[in-house]
Computed example of a mutant assay.
Amino acid sequence: MSTPGISVIVVGGGIVGLAVAHELTTAGHRVRVVEKEATVAAHQTGRNSGVIHSGLYYRPGSLKARLCVAGAASMKQFAAEHDIAHDVPGKLVVAPDHRQVDALQELERRARANGVPATWLTGEQARDIEPHVSCVAALHVHSTGRIDYAEVTRKLADLVTAQGGEVLLGHQVTRITETSSGVLVGTDQDELRADVLVNCAGLHSDRIARLGGLDPDVRIVPFRGEYYELDPAHADLVRGLVYPVPDPDLPFLGVHLTRGLDDTVHAGPNAVLAGAREGYSWTTIRGRDLLDTVTWPGFRPLARTYWKTGAAEVARSLSRRRFAAALRVLVPDLPTEALRRAPAGVRAQAIDRAGSLVDDFHFARTPQQVHVLNAPSPAATASLEIAKHIVAELTART
């Protein structure tokens, strides 16, 4: 890719796919984005809490840590340049009792290692920021922001088309053939040719990789994240963003409270195994998707390791009372009746053959293909930097 003007097909119209397309068109390459839905940002991108993550949680030196910290800065800059509503209120990560203090101190160490500005607070100092929070200590993470990632994605799509690229909606990829000189991509609408393919298909990324002739070392297992929102009468219980200390063995942040740009306070998400890759409710079940999950060699060891955690998440999913009880650990005055159901999301979590939850961003490569095989949160925050990473990789190796 050392010579401008090559052709690239990007599979996936979420924020990562459109960020890659924008990076490529800006560099002068010919790009077509292929998206099976009728709109961009239809899945993970448009179904999250809209947080610009700071990079606090991730292992120092990991791709997540590096790209999230850089991505938070570039996302805010992008939003400012294109008049996209956003702000940077910061957030509190709270230790409700002394059992979480050691883990909170480890987060403070990671913040320093990752270059994330954070201040240690006593419980009293935390209540100056969030009067209804109950904790013995907290981290005030200053660089955490809020934004509408679907709006960012739509702007990226506009920029791609303005720079001569195409965004083909309603085109589902059905086959991929790699040759010595490029790729042939068949969709349910037409047949496309390009020099390079970049797979940013999220929930279906491993399937796209298999269509491209790869045998991925991971499988996407969908986890539904269910949200509630607080009714207006109780929304003043939360001023900004309040998070628990997460379980270090899981790539999930625990149920938290987030006041959005529209002042709606969202609560969640939990994490339950979904019955379909686009399984936004308990009633959405697809046999093929379930079979893909349970036949993967890593599923049984995963289930053995986390069955207690999984059972607790299912119980919380089925009981508003249990969900509210988890939130009252953070905000004791929150009544169960304040919660009302909000739209759910599904996290595309990669699992390896040994049954481990893949913790970092994960890519696979052939001479004419790049596949993004694990890009859950904080991928939206990091999307512009993930795009730079992918394009630099193509430049270095093509």
Rank of each mutant, 00 (worst) to 15 (best):
R397Y: 11
L241C: 11
T144G: 09
L318D: 06
D215Y: 06
A137P: 01
I208E: 01
G13L: 06
R146Y: 04
P117Y: 03
S49H: 05
V331W: 00
G17A: 09
L384K: 04
W120C: 11
V329A: 13
G186H: 13
V136E: 10
F252Y: 02
R219H: 05
S143H: 05
P117Q: 10
F299K: 07
Y306Q: 06
R175Y: 11
S319M: 05
A41R: 01
L139P: 10
R219I: 00
P301A: 06
S134L: 08
T26N: 12
V40D: 00
R321N: 12
Q163H: 15
H82L: 12
S319Y: 06
L384R: 03
V16Y: 03
R32N: 03
V331H: 00
P378Y: 03
G298Y: 04
A157Q: 07
A27D: 08
A42R: 09
G145Q: 01
G123T: 01
V88Y: 03
S281E: 11
Y306E: 04
V136K: 07
L18T: 14
L290G: 05
R59S: 11
V16S: 08
R347S: 04
R397C: 11
A95D: 02
L67D: 09
T295R: 15
V31P: 07
V33Y: 01
R99S: 14
L394F: 08
E124I: 12
S317Q: 11
N374G: 06
G46N: 02
A201F: 12
V255C: 12
D87Y: 08
P301H: 08
R99L: 12
P216A: 08
A73R: 15
W307R: 15
